[in-house]
Nucleic acid binder design. Structure first.
Length: 499
RNA sequence: GCAAAAGUAGCUCAGCUGGUAGAGCGCGACCUUGCCAAGGUCGAGGUCGCGGGUUCGAACCCCGUCUUUUGCUCCA
């Protein structure tokens, strides 16, 4: 067997759609850009991944608990986090140079020119007018002002401007049925804030002692300017985040520890070391004092899959300020002088992985095309291509397929007995139509690790064959051994033990 | 957002200088079939992305529009 040439993203997208993993959203209406739906097999794989992550966080760590916060949050949350002000700029494009500018910066630049020419009053008037227009959200007015002030693009030196557009990261909607009484709320752009605002609730109700973590899986929404690369960047996506609260000064140790633990997780679910790497952030966000990405080698290159950030006490401090509620923790542990560490706002180490990106990584890695027959020098007609998903058995949508070799002589009845035996423990697939080879192939394409064939010998001695997906090899086992054998192969335990 | 290319059956595609649509695979039924996409018979499935225009007549020519892909830009 020889490995096929590098698979393209196109192959992945096609396979995902053809075999019920990922569909474009609203496809019958021509689709909705950057939104995708998970199909019948995709949802199983994604659920399995989320479940593995959840267990790796909460079950393996007695000081990590989970929550499920609402998507809607009080609007002040996003003031405190910086998402409202920091991520809300009026942008304008010059049609000739194709350059994009911040409209407010263009006007401020002009005002500065006036000031430098000794026309301070004119400068102030311009800034006031800009402030008024932006405050009233009058974007057309801002554009008119730019043209009236004869502000040209420094590259093309023309006034050929597009309209001013507000590039807001967040989606907004209204709470309250009557328009006048309604309040603008946002669909959360990250799940982390739901954890921060519940920090004290969890700490107190769970009697949690620092260090401890809060984990959450949930949808988040971002109004991305362009969306590309399939489910890698979507407007609606799912995050798996854990915020770990630590004593100030210890954050770097925890940061390093979680960074290594998270890498082990990705390896444990089957992603090869060679396709994973750390990418350390040189330029840090305003809230972080250390940050590293775990990148996976997608068909379009190494890209961020998970971020591990040391977020300092930025978020809790912000929430304390905006909510006027103390976010302190009293640390009873004793320092080197024998005194309690006392009150402080904890530091936070965040691990944040995109469920959809993890799905894509696992799917890309599992997607395997092999050709056989070439190496043994036979004529090219004997060349066979085989495509299968080399998913970790614990992640596969179906754990086993039950296939009577023919659909007569009582074999289907016998096979149904085997199905009944297994279906309460594993998700199994029963099929009796078509040739056995075709049925094997169908299971390969969706990543089912085991095919159990029922033949005439089964009727005599209660043995079946198990055919392994990756090797296509078969072994004969007694029906009574089936459950234990499959249970071992598909067990989550074998993954968790590696982390 | 800009530029280029492409949209025909579930998938991959063919369809000549304009004359009202085809193949392979897949799908469904039946027959045959003892292990890696098996053979046979029958069958379902397309207002050719959408909207206009030219023409006696448009999948094909023209205009617009939507979607996708690739490259640039953006990713605050």
């Amino acid at each position: 067997m020889t490995p096929a040439p590098e698979t393209s993203l196109q192959d992945i997208v096609s396979h995902a759609k053809e075999y019920g993993f990922v569909f474009p959203s609203s496809e019958i209406y021509d689709g909705l850009q950057a939104v995708y739906d998970y199909g019948q097999n995709g949802v199983e794989l994604k659920n399995n991944l989320k479940n593995m992550w959840w267990k790796a966080m909460t079950q393996l760590n007695d000081n990590v608990v989970g929550i499920d916060a609402a998507i809607f949050m009080h609007p002040l949350t996003w003031k405190a986090s910086g998402h409202v002000d920091g991520f809300n700029d009026p942008m304008i494009d010059n049609k000739d140079s194709k350059k994009r500018y911040r409209a407010d910066q263009l006007l401020e630049g002009k005002a500065e020119q006036y000031a430098n020419n000794g026309e301070a009053e004119k400068a102030q008037a311009l800034l006031n007018e800009m402030g008024r227009l932006l405050g009233a959200n009058d974007l057309e007015g801002v554009r008119s002002l730019i043209i009236a002030e004869d502000i040209k693009c420094p590259v093309s030196n023309t006034l050929n401007w597009t309209e001013v557009r507000q590039f807001n990261l967040m989606f907004s909607t209204q709470i309250g049925s009557v328009a006048e009484d309604s309040t603008t709320v946002y669909l959360r752009p990250e799940t982390a804030q739901g954890i921060f605002v519940n920090f004290l609730n969890v700490q107190k109700s769970g009697r949690m002692k620092i260090p401890f973590g809060i984990a959450q899986i949930g949808k988040a929404f971002r109004n991305e300017i362009v969306a590309k690369q399939f489910i890698f960047r979507m407007r609606e996506f799912e995050q798996m985040e854990m915020q770990f609260f630590v004593r100030p000064g210890t954050e770097m140790n925890w940061y390093e520890q979680w960074r290594d633990t998270r890498l082990k997780f990705h390896q444990a679910i089957g992603l090869p070391v060679s396709k994973l790497k750390f990418h350390i952030h040189e330029k840090l966000a305003h809230y972080a004092n250390a940050a590293v990405d775990i990148e996976y080698q997608f068909p379009f290159g190494f890209r961020e899959m998970e971020g591990i950030h040391s977020r300092t006490n930025f978020d809790l401090t912000q929430h304390q300020e905006f909510s006027k509620k103390k976010q302190q923790y009293f640390d009873n542990d004793l320092d080197e002088n024998g005194k309690p560490f006392g009150n402080y706002i904890p530091y936070v180490v965040e691990t944040s992985v995109g469920a959809d990106r993890l799905f894509l990584a696992v799917f890309c890695n599992a997607f395997t095309k092999e050709t056989s027959g070439e190496a043994d020098g036979r004529p090219s007609e004997t060349l066979k291509e085989r495509t299968y998903l080399k998913l970790h058995p614990a992640l596969a949508p179906y754990k086993a397929a039950i296939l009577p070799i023919t659909k007569k002589d009582g074999l289907p009845e016998k096979a149904r007995e085997v199905e009944k035996l297994l279906k309460t423990e594993f998700r199994v697939f029963y099929e009796e139509k078509d040739a056995i080879g075709k049925r094997y192939t169908r299971q390969d394409l969706i990543g089912t690790p085991f095919c159990i064939a029922i033949d005439h010998q089964t009727l005599e001695d209660n043995t079946v064959t198990i055919r392994h997906r990756d090797t296509t090899e078969q072994e004969r086992v007694h029906i009574s051994e089936l459950k234990a054998k499959i249970a071992y192969e598909v067990s989550e335990q074998r993954i968790l033990e590696l982390i």
